[in-house]
């Protein structure tokens, strides 16, 4: 029956939607739980510093190199197009605004999720699979406070710094291509950029955006690791889900 198969398909859509909503809800609850268990992280900040190292410092190279290249491409392509309108000096504005407002936070968050987020998921998932989390619980230590919260805060602190580095490197990349290689006027490049980019509206908003992405990525990464089924396949699946979602 046509009606029946239509109904079944609609039911599938409903089922899928409910599962997604359930997962989001569970992540938010988990985030709340992480926040309530965060006191330890701040009382013993060396735990967080360790995680900033693993999440932030180890993502530094990939973020800076990607930023540089994205900026170079923007500078090159932007100038080609703007040249048609005789306003190639505005290439600085184009590079700076697209990086600071959008590309910086978004692309840095993507790179961060695939580099550091997946590592956090895999690490927590493996700790679960090898009963390290259970062992901790049996030692009367809450793994949420000792394992999850420091990783969460390490990610949240690293993310805006990485996004800003990405944007700054991108602008340097755009400058290298447009001014040094092609020969757009140096002064016009910077002055037009400064006139167009507003600190509060563009830069501060970009930083806030990256902070929100940092919270989301860290919460998802820790959640997926903590909820991973304790097998190799489970950890693998959770790692993939972190990057995808």
């Amino acid at each position: 029956m046509v009606l029946e198969s239509t109904l079944r398909n609609i039911r599938l859509v409903g089922d899928g939607t409910l599962k997604i909503v359930e997962r989001i809800g569970a992540t938010v609850v988990f985030l709340g739980l992480t926040l309530t268990q965060s006191a330890t992280s701040f009382r013993r900040f060396d735990l967080v510093i360790r995680e900033i190292f693993y999440a932030g410092v180890q993502s530094l190279i990939i973020i800076m190199v990607s930023g540089l290249f994205v900026g170079m491409v923007l500078g090159l392509q932007g100038r080609e197009t703007l040249q048609n309108y005789g306003s190639e000096q505005s290439v600085g504005v184009l590079v700076a605004l697209s990086l600071v407002r959008e590309l910086g936070p978004v692309v840095a968050a993507l790179l961060f999720a695939s580099r550091a987020g997946s590592a956090i998921t895999a690490e927590i998932g493996l700790m679960k699979a090898t009963e390290q989390l259970s062992a901790m619980e049996m030692m009367a230590i809450n793994p949420m406070a000792r394992v999850v919260a420091p990783r969460f805060w390490g990610g949240v602190i690293s993310m805006p710094l990485l996004a800003m580095l990405f944007s700054a490197m991108g602008i340097i990349g755009g400058f290298l291509v447009a001014v040094v290689l092609i020969g757009v006027d140096d002064g016009a490049f910077w002055s037009q950029m400064q006139a167009a980019v507003d600190f509060r509206h563009d830069i501060a908003n970009g930083i806030i955006k990256s902070l929100v992405f940092g919270i989301a990525v860290s919460a998802i990464a820790t959640f997926e690791g903590y909820e991973a089924s304790p097998t190799a396949e489970g950890v693998y699946g959770a790692t993939t889900r972190t990057v995808v979602s």
Partner: peptide
């Protein structure tokens, strides 16, 4: 209460479950 009790407990897991980090 459970955590207070567990402080008086020691447990060794199947494959040791040492903290790998």
């Amino acid at each position: 209460d459970l955590y207070a009790l567990r402080r008086r407990l020691g447990m060794m897991f199947q494959f040791g479950a040492l903290f790998t980090d």
